[in-house]
Write a protein that binds this DNA or RNA. Structure first.
Length: 864
RNA sequence: GCGGACGUGGCGAAAUUGGCAGACGCGCGAGACUUAGGAUCUCGUGGAGCAAUCCGUGGGGGUUCGAGUCCCCCCGUCCGCACCA
């Protein structure tokens, strides 16, 4: 037995052992050996899209964190579900395949096996028997099956909607995939186009998606983002009568959050897409048409960029403000159209109250429209009297029946008045829109629907699922917006219950597969149903879900939506899928640029005394911290780190850098400290100069009941360390756990023969979630035949956390002036006397006005 | 503009929740052992000062015997959202 710390040999051996023995395979209810009395713990990572470039060390941070949790939970006696799989469908996978000239099926297979290899390489204890791949027909059969449940409940529908079309990608994109008029992926320009699309009625769940946020343990920032995205706003709907148009178009309904300002509405604005514009009088037809055309041609980017300067035209139409009697001339107000009013929100039309809305105010000033004051600001705040718009709460004025009311009451009263006259009612709106769910792309789940000759669209029968994605050699987008699947002629023609039918040629978006994968992990090989009731009843919900904050809105909102639908269908027993969500911070890295601002790959940089120079040329470079990206030349590959330093060292380093939630920069230089720690543990137990499995004094249990001297000291240190390790799991700041273990090992190393076998074994157990390979190796060297993965987690005995004597700081006027050592049970008088004696020079010639004694903490003298 | 997170040594970071600021590690300095060391071990390392001591948690105020921690104002960084009526 070689006794040098050989990370490659050790890690290979244990990686193989775990795999050969399927050590981390979790048993389901009903399986032989399943222990129904053990508590369950479901710890889940956001599964990755397996990209062609493989994992970098930044991706691993979260996976290592969840692995530590999973390993500790097993040792605490939980049945742990800790699975991994692949989010393999979607645009990036398809684009990668196109770029490499291969079929996504093949590139996906290569990429996933590389990912799997890398994840195993860093010692992650996944139950690989539960691996799923969203692009596998055995998986997407059930994605389609769930879609059918949505379809049956009226939550999936087709609509001709203006959608984002990306010319470069030849596909439609959802609102949230378009940022400032450009595609989120690839940054290509996008335009709006009306197209017939599949939509999911997520808006029907808006209220519940909002409400149930209160019941889950998620970061406040993510909840805030979801609330913002759902965008609930309470107000009223008010009907204005439009004059001089056909009766069926004469009602112009607006949504407002400020019904109390109705008396101050001096004009109206409709979105350029609004149906009322069909009825513009001939005198204004040309101007309006020109404006509408101009607005349509603008990308969203231009529309927002030009936000500074409002545009719009008068339609020639007038409406009557229902605040005033029919004959009252004050009620006659002009209707404009302007692109600052959005077609998709509220009713696409507003009543403009320039006195109390910034946007209306700006518009009124530009086009010289009247501005009325109907809300008096509270004392001390600026309002129209000072030439500025006042949008806050105040007191109603110039508003007839609601004059004198404070804004909240004025709102309520205004709604009552409108309702009584049948021209308005309370209404709540949401910013959330229905989810655009179809893509004219190849690499996604086909819709489980067929089109019949008479135009009906019907779902295919459950037993005909999956509708398999046909193999196509040319699956590139067509360019005219039609889907690639339209070219799969043999596939397209089918039958439905004997009738000729044509398949739907759209595919689902990349998000579909990730909307329920945590459920499939519970029962991944079930061929009769997506998961069994027993499995879901036991494992659900996910106890801890870890991933990047980037998915704050889309994935997490969509997943919650599907889960709630499944709850309504009776297929899951919880309203929410993820009880606790945790966002790991991004791992950043240094990058370098030269004097001209050009990036220099890290491989070409030389560090001389913390200044940085280009290798060869020698010019000085500027270092900065940024995300890890291939384009920045600063990607660190875990394969290299594992080969050179070991997986255990990599894990320790990534955890030791800082709290899991924080962003922090990778610095290869710092790894050595983690490696030194692992080696120090090794040497504390193994003597590298001998061939003994462990040091002689650790070979047998001395079984000393009474510890004393250094052994007692180490026992106390060990309990303190374990306590700190335990504490670190609350907020996943494992950096403090590692620091505690380092301190203990430092103390133990100073007293090479004092460490007892029991202490050494407990050290190994506590270390094992963080550095599992070396821990297993040491455990087996102690002579244990079985893996430590299911050994009991060492407990903390409070007796060892306290000392008989305490060192207490002594302050004078709040400043540290001395220290005293007193017995744990010393009376206050004794402590004060000792404290006085400890700081004589600071008390000399002074009067002690007050003495503050915080038990076991400090003494503070206030002197004069 | 709105919402969220954050700001502590040369660097990554600690700090029982109001009680010894800088644990632990990197780097750096000195030394030991070595034919050698980019190995290992020991000691030192916030700043100023010969020292006693003083100053120090983005800046400025405040509460308190005592503030990194609580309150008010400001500055800066990062991440969302952004004409949502």
């Amino acid at each position: 037995m070689s006794n040098a710390y050989d990370h490659i040999g050790i890690e290979n051996r244990w990686r193989k052992h775990w795999e050969d023995t399927a050590l981390f395979r979790a048993k389901n209810p009903g399986e032989p050996g399943f222990d129904p009395k053990a508590p369950k713990f479901y710890v889940l990572d956001m599964f990755p899209y397996p990209s062609g470039s493989g994992l970098h060390v930044g991706h691993a941070v979260g996976y290592i964190g969840t692995d530590v949790v999973a390993r500790k939970k097993r040792m605490e006696g939980c049945n742990v579900l800790h699975p991994m799989g692949w989010d393999a469908f979607g645009l990036p996978a398809e684009q990668y395949a196109i770029a490499t000239g291969k079929n996504p099926r093949e590139t996906n297979a290569v990429n996933t096996s590389n990912y799997r290899r890398q994840l195993k390489l860093i010692g992650l204890s996944y139950d690989w028997s539960r691996e799923v791949d969203t692009s596998d027909p055995r998986y997407y059969r059930w994605t389609q099956w769930i879609f059918k449940r949505l379809f049956e409940r009226g939550l999936a529908y087709q609509a001709e909607v203006p959608v984002w079309w990306c010319e470069e990608l030849k596909t439609v994109l959802a609102n949230e995939e378009v940022i400032n008029g450009r595609s989120e992926r690839g940054n290509h320009p996008c335009v709006r186009r009306p197209l017939k699309q599949w939509m999911l009625r997520i808006t029907a769940y808006a209220e519940r998606l909002l409400e149930d946020l209160d019941s889950i343990d998620w970061p406040e920032s993510i909840k805030a983002q979801q609330r913002e995205w759902i965008g609930k706003s309470a107000g009223a709907e008010v009907t204005f009568r439009v004059q001089g148009v056909p009766a069926n178009a004469a009602e112009l309904v607006v949504f407002t959050t400020r019904p109390d300002t109705l008396w101050g509405a001096t004009f109206m604005v409709v979105a350029p897409e609004h149906a009322l514009l069909k009825h513009v009088p001939a005198s204004h037809r040309a101007a309006v048409d020109a404006y509408v055309a101009q607005a349509a041609s603008k990308s969203e980017l231009e529309r927002t960029d030009l936000a500074k300067e409002k545009t719009g035209v008068f339609t020639g139409l007038y409406a009557h403000n229902p605040a005033f009697d029919a004959g009252d001339a004050r009620g006659r107000i002009p209707i404009w159209t302007a692109d600052y009013v959005m077609a998709g929100y509220g009713t696409g039309a507003i009543m403009a109250v320039p006195g109390h809305d910034e946007r209306d105010f700006e518009f009124a000033r530009k086009f010289d429209l009247p501005v009325l004051e109907v809300v008096r600001p509270p004392e001390g705040e600026k309002g129209l009297a000072d030439g500025v718009c006042f949008a806050g709460d105040g007191t109603a004025v110039n508003s007839g029946p609601i004059d004198g009311l404070a804004t909240p009451q004025a709102k309520a009263r205004a709604i009552e008045l409108l309702a009584a006259r049948g021209v308005g009612k309370a209404r709540t709106t949401y910013k959330l829109r229905d989810w655009l769910f179809s893509r004219q792309r190849y690499w996604g789940e086909p819709f489980p629907l067929v089109h019949l000759a008479d135009g009906r669209i019907v779902p295919v029968d459950d037993d005909a699922l999956p509708v398999e994605l046909p193999r196509m050699d040319d699956f590139k987008p067509s360019g005219d917006g039609s889907a690639p699947l339209a070219r799969a002629k043999d596939w397209l023609a089918t039958t439905w219950r004997g009738e000729p039918a044509r398949r739907d040629t759209d595919t689902m978006p990349g998000w579909a597969g990730s909307c329920w994968y945590w459920l499939r992990f519970m029962d991944p090989t079930n061929v009769r149903e997506p998961w069994s009731r027993d499995a879901e009843g036991y494992w659900g919900p996910v106890d801890l879900y870890v991933g990047g904050a980037a998915h704050a809105v889309m994935h997490l909102l969509y997943a919650r939506f599907w889960h709630k639908v499944l709850y309504d269908v009776g297929l899951v027993h919880t309203k929410e899928p993820f009880q606790r969500l945790f966002n790991q911070g991004m791992l950043t890295a240094f990058a370098y640029q030269d004097a001209t601002g050009r990036l220099v790959p890290n491989a070409d940089v030389e560090d001389r005394d913390n200044r940085f120079y280009r290798k060869g040329a020698g010019d000085e470079l500027t270092q900065f911290v940024t995300k890890m990206a291939k384009s920045l030349g600063n990607v660190v590959n875990p394969d290299d780190i594992v080969r050179e330093h070991g997986a255990d060292t990599l894990r320790i380093y990534e955890l030791f850098m800082g709290p899991l939630a924080d962003s922090k920069p990778w610095n290869t230089r710092d790894i050595s400290g983690s490696r030194r720690f692992v080696e120090r543990v090794w040497r504390a137990i193994v003597d590298p100069d001998t061939s003994d499995p462990v040091r002689p004094h650790l070979a047998v249990d001395q079984a000393t009941p009474e510890l004393s001297g250094d052994a007692l000291l180490l026992e106390k240190e060990l309990h303190r360390a374990i306590r700190r390790v335990d504490d670190s799991f609350a907020s996943l700041n494992f950096n403090t756990a590692i620091a505690a273990l380092m301190s203990f090992v430092n103390e133990a190393s100073k007293r090479p023969t004092a460490l007892t076998r029991s202490q050494a074994e407990r050290l190994v157990l506590v270390l094992s979630p963080f550095a599992p390979h070396v821990a297993e190796e040491l455990w087996s060297r102690f002579g244990h035949a079985r893996s430590l993965a299911y050994e009991a987690w060492p407990s903390v005995d409070p007796r060892y956390l306290e000392d008989d004597t305490l060192e207490i700081p002594v302050q004078v006027l709040g400043k540290l002036r001395g220290k005293i050592v007193v017995g744990k049970t010393a009376p206050e008088s004794e402590i004060v006397a000792a404290a006085k004696a400890a700081v004589p020079t600071w008390l000399e010639g002074k009067t002690i006005v007050k003495t503050i004694v915080v038990p076991a903490k400090l003494v503070n003298f206030v002197v004069r």
